[in-house]
């Protein structure tokens, strides 16, 4: 549960004091104030506009639309991605700053949607060009389904480990580097694991 729910926990030190890690606090802040890039492609974008209106208020999740990708935390691909648009989406994704997330909303961005068979200009799933975190199915998905997807994204952010990234990944990096050198017949003096 959330950080604030632990304030009245009787097994803790005293009411009003919470023990936790710095990572907990930062993740709690990041998950509850995700700012998204205002970007709509097709029919799912209309459903997304209805989500922002007063009946299904999306701002209560702490999400505000940002117009520039350099200021956004996550991007919602809502609608069909065509091959002409695919390069632009890749560029938008690369302009966002880490940590960034992608939500694929609607059937067209998951697998090409109703245009999968003869669509010569449709990209069959946006995960062919950018890595996706949450998939929300539907054509278009109901607002309630979208909220479930948003809550799953928040769960993912809360469980993320963000400190000491280099130390954790250094072992994996070393293994990949030695494999690369093996494959390309590069032999360095012993003690070196750097990739040429």
């Amino acid at each position: 549960m959330g950080l604030l729910n632990r304030l009245d926990d009787p097994y803790n030190i005293a009411p009003g004091i919470v023990l936790g890690t710095m990572e907990d606090l930062l993740n709690w802040g990041r998950a509850r104030s995700d700012w998204y890039l205002q970007f709509g492609l097709a029919c799912c974008a209309i459903e997304f506009m209805a989500l922002n209106a007063s009946h299904y208020d999306f701002m209560r999740f702490g999400c505000i639309p940002r117009t520039s990708p350099r200021q956004a935390d996550f991007i919602i691909i809502s609608g069909t991605v065509t091959l002409k648009m695919a390069e632009r989406i890749k560029r938008l994704y690369e302009q966002m700053a880490e940590p960034k997330y992608v939500m694929a909303m609607g059937s067209c961005s998951i697998c090409g949607g109703p245009y999968w068979k003869q669509g010569y200009h449709v990209l069959k799933g946006v995960d062919r060009i950018i890595p996706v975190d949450v998939y929300v199915p539907g054509c278009p998905p109901r607002p309630e389904a979208f909220f479930e997807g948003m809550m799953k994204l928040q769960d993912k952010i809360i469980k993320q480990k963000i400190f000491e990234k280099r130390a954790r990944l250094a072992e994996e990096d070393a293994k990949l580097a030695s494999q690369h050198n093996e494959n390309n017949n590069i032999h360095l003096p012993t003690g070196w694991t750097e990739v040429k």
Partner: peptide
Amino acid sequence: GYLHRCFEKHAENVTYPQVIPYIDRMDYI
């Protein structure tokens, strides 16, 4: 052309009632 989904090509390969969902998605509002 950034949303060209080839509706006319799809319509040549499905039956007449099956074209109706594709027509829905043209002016989706």
